[in-house]
Simulated scan of single mutants.
Amino acid sequence: MQADLIQEARRQAEICNACRYCEGYCSVFPSLHANRAFSDGDITQLANLCHNCRGCYYACQYTAPHEFDLNLPAALAEVRRDSWESFAWPQPLARKFHTHGGAIILALVVGFALLFAAIKAIGSAGGEGFYAVLSHNAMVAIFAPAFLLPLVSIAVGIRRFWREVGGQRIALGDITGAFGRAVKMQDLAAGHGEGCNFEDEDRFSQGRRHVHQAIMYGFLLCFASTSVATLMHYFFDMPAPYPLFSLPKLFGISGGLLLTVGCIGMVALKLKSDRELGDTQAWGGDIAFIALLGFVGFSGLVLYALSGTAAMPALLAVHLGAVLAFFLLTPFTKMAHGFYRLAALIRDAQRKRLAG
């Protein structure tokens, strides 16, 4: 990890530790105030606990032009991004992504080309619906590795993170407490419960919390759709296509809508926010990834709406190309932050349990 980013975040954390004005704002400050000195692992843990709500910045009396020049949200955002890059496997891909948001576009183009080639070379086994364009076996051959390999990469990164932050044996209560905070997105409401200042220093809003929830639950519903369809195909001998009022369709359509709306809302909020209070180096990559995720949801909805038309084969290739790019880039994009933040929340729950 970059020592200068850690050192600057440590300097600011030490000042915050002496001040303690923001003690009740979010999970960061109770954890910060529990320490007298901060190791590199402590700073990494604080950075991944931070949700960048920015309330502490707007409440702080030591921001510029004060000589202390505090900007804790930005300092922690930079360490957070650097930690994902440092722990990622393979590491060079992560660093390239965050500094070159166009890598997503390249991945999409490559994904489209591969899928078009697969459609032409492999062809169909005479199935119905989408399988009339690309056989079920071909889809499995393409997407099973694209799903499993990123999971392995994320697992390696989380293991490295856990060692860095001094994580110990996990108790069931640590997991349930962390999941409870994650599901409610409690830290995006800040300590006062009125929301965060992400959009405007004078305005508290739950907007960022709501779009995060839309994206999270939209993604989970889409994942549930695919999982249920897989079970129906292999265990109940019920291959696709499925009718509208089936679980795969109901989960998929509702998930696609939430994902699309949530990503549009997130981009709008990021465009209105002050970039200097986050990681400016990662801003372009973040926007590109959110756009990709939203496009996955939107293209899935369009594909379903036009599934009986002549446009379906091309739409299928575009949609699957976006999905393929999403999966392959997951360990190196903002998507990884969900895994690291959950791990940080588990570590924080562990800290509270061991301290009490």
Rank of each mutant, 00 (worst) to 15 (best):
L188S: 03
L188Q: 10
A189G: 02
A190S: 06
A190P: 04
G191R: 00
G191N: 09
G191I: 08
H192W: 03
H192M: 00
H192Q: 10
G193C: 02
G193Y: 02
G193D: 04
G193A: 01
E194D: 02
E194N: 04
E194R: 02
G195Q: 06
G195M: 01
G195R: 07
C196D: 15
C196A: 13
N197M: 03
N197E: 10
N197K: 13
F198D: 02
F198G: 05
F198Y: 12
E199P: 04
E199H: 04
D200N: 13
D200Y: 09
E201F: 13
E201D: 11
E201I: 04
D202E: 08
D202L: 14
D202N: 15
R203T: 07
R203A: 13
F204V: 09
F204L: 15
F204D: 02
S205D: 00
S205Q: 14
S205R: 07
Q206D: 02
Q206W: 10
Q206A: 11
Q206K: 06
Q206Y: 08
G207Y: 03
R208L: 10
R208H: 15
R208P: 09
R209D: 06
R209E: 12
R209G: 10
H210Y: 02
H210G: 02
V211K: 07
V211C: 01
V211Q: 11
V211G: 04
V211R: 09
V211H: 08
H212L: 02
Q213F: 09
Q213D: 01
Q213Y: 01
A214F: 14
A214T: 01
I215W: 05
I215R: 09
I215N: 07
I215E: 03
M216V: 09
M216R: 10
M216Y: 13
Y217D: 08
Y217A: 05
Y217M: 05
Y217T: 05
G218Q: 12
G218S: 12
F219E: 05
L220Y: 14
L221W: 10
L221C: 15
L221F: 15
C222S: 11
C222W: 03
F223L: 14
F223C: 13
F223P: 00
F223R: 08
A224Q: 04
A224T: 07
A224N: 03
S225K: 04
S225V: 00
S225I: 08
S225A: 15
T226Q: 10
T226L: 11
T226A: 15
T226S: 13
S227W: 06
S227C: 05
S227L: 15
V228T: 09
A229S: 15
A229R: 04
T230K: 09
T230F: 13
